[in-house]
Write a protein that binds this DNA or RNA. Structure first.
Lengths: 115, 115
DNA sequence: ACATCATATATCCATATGTATATGCGTTGG
DNA sequence: CCAACGCATATACATATGGATATATGATGT
């Protein structure tokens, strides 16, 4: 079997750095394709192709405005990703907490030495 | 040019559902390869290959224990993903807030009608 | 109707992928 | 010292990919 399609889910769609860049721009508001072409320094067909993938997964919505196509972010589609990583968050924060504990112990030791 | 390698960063590594399953298991603690084979119903070479990808990206660490190889989650490697999606979180929560506002307005209207 | 602008799509290539099977290789136990 | 075990890797294959170029589609203004 081949690799999973980038259009299979948000995880795959977002795995591509260029597409994350596109989303980062769209986070600032609705944009026509040519804006993205200029801002991201990509060829127009590439941008259109990436947008197609993002649309298939539901991360962006399109709206026809005259002869332009305005793309808008649909943030809700990113929620599954957030929910998944959020489940791991306490695991790396535990380490920070442990580090803080060590630092506090060191402080206590200093104070004891002062007395 | 071809697609970015899955070994290039955590985003790509995690795009594969099987690898997320592996991480979900490892979140519960260190495991030898065969545990994953049994739990995930995957062939051993597949598990080994996925683990290799995850290791290359730094999401898991290995430790030799006798003739077993114990894999452990390295949650910190997932932080970039969390940080990226977290930036979008307010965007989908705004909608919920807006919904709450509407609901509160409705409540206020009800109260006014009561008076 | 026609020319023009804004996008989308078709086709090409090189490559990375996931799955499968078979095999290599180090560790342990007798 | 050798067999069994645990795991990693080599190879084969079908496929999806991203990039590039060229072309089609679709709306607009005249």
């Amino acid at each position: 079997m081949a690799r999973a399609a980038t259009t299979s889910d948000a995880f795959n769609a977002v795995a591509e750095p260029r597409r994350r860049e596109i989303l980062d721009v769209l986070a600032g508001g609705e944009r026509p394709v040519n804006d993205l072409v200029d801002l991201l320094d990509l060829a127009q067909p590439h941008v259109s192709r990436h947008l197609r993938v993002l649309r298939d997964v539901g991360v962006v919505d399109v709206r026809g405005e005259g002869r332009q196509r305005l793309y808008r972010l649909n943030p809700q589609a990113l929620k599954p990703i957030h929910d998944w990583v959020a489940g791991y968050r306490h695991l790396w924060e535990e380490r920070l907490d442990a580090l803080e504990d060590v630092l506090e112990d060191l402080k206590d030791q200093e104070n004891q030495e002062k007395d």
